[in-house]
């Protein structure tokens, strides 16, 4: 069964113990939200899952195989990673950026085939980027850039999508658009680990949440079990307003998209 398992992950960077004995499970079709205050270790945990960082202790298995034993190409076909502040160092066109997502499926000398082109077209349509394909990446707005980078990740047809704050700095409509796309990925059998600071979005879209504090897991489970007064107080030093103590009242806000068939 497709899954990511991580056990007892610890990470020390310099003299800082960034993670202490964190475990994580990601099931097929699931969206797992990593939440917690700044410096809790969320990004480091995600980078370990992507294979970018090696844990000081603990292990990660992808579909039962140790992550470090996977060849680079096999790893990159299974896992896509969306960095926190994705950028392009050259003013490449949107279409070329999306096409980079197919690299894990191409050999050194192999030209993109019909299937690669079809996947790129499909992802461009899915992310509503048709009208932007010729535009240079740096000329796009923040929301457009976020969609392009997500399209690049989806073009690799990964089983697992690891996204580090993909909706940071986006307006509400674009936040919903990106989160809908992540949800779609799960609905099609993929799995997502996403770092979010917006607890409403996290509780609305994620199947489970994992709350980190000071490099440790404070709580993990369904949103209504994780986002409670005690956990919020411990993790963020805030408490809910009087009379708004339960998840289903505090986070009952739903959004209705202005496009038919996309309402949440």
């Amino acid at each position: 069964m497709s899954s990511i398992e991580a056990r007892d992950l610890s990470l020390t960077l310099g003299s800082n113990r960034v993670l202490r004995g964190v475990s994580l499970d990601l099931r097929p079709g699931e969206m797992l939200g990593l939440i917690g205050p700044n410096g809790a270790g969320k990004t480091c945990l995600l980078r370990i899952l992507a294979g970018i960082l090696s844990p000081s202790q603990g292990w990660v298995r992808i579909d039962g195989r140790p992550l470090q034993s996977l060849p680079a190409q096999a790893r990159s076909r299974r896992i896509a990673y969306l960095t926190q502040a994705g950028t392009a160092h050259w003013p490449v066109s949107v279409e070329r950026i999306v096409a980079l997502g197919r690299l894990p499926h191409l050999g050194n000398w192999q030209l993109p085939g019909e299937r690669d082109t079809a996947v790129i077209r499909r992802v461009i349509a899915q992310t509503d980027l048709h009208h932007l394909t010729e535009r240079q990446f740096p000329t796009l707005s923040g929301g457009e850039k976020a969609r392009v980078l997500l399209a690049r990740a989806l073009a690799g047809e990964p089983q697992y999508l690891l996204a580090d704050e993909p909706v940071a700095a986006l307006d509400l409509a674009h936040q919903l658009e990106v989160m809908d796309l992540l949800r779609q990925h799960c609905n099609h059998g993929g799995s997502v680990v996403v770092i979010l600071h917006d607890l409403r979005l996290a509780s609305h879209y994620c199947n489970r949440l994992q709350l980190l504090l000071d490099g440790e897991t404070l709580a993990v489970g369904p949103p209504e079990g994780v986002i409670g007064d005690d956990n919020l107080k411990r993790a963020f030093g805030v408490k809910m307003r009087e009379g708004v103590g339960a998840i289903d009242t505090a986070f009952s806000l739903t959004w209705v998209r202005d496009k038919p068939g996309e309402g949440q």
Partner: peptide, 16 residues
Amino acid sequence: DALTLGEETAYTLGVN
């Protein structure tokens, strides 16, 4: 080409 998106993304695209 993959490095266009930065070192971390290039790594996750399979670049050693």
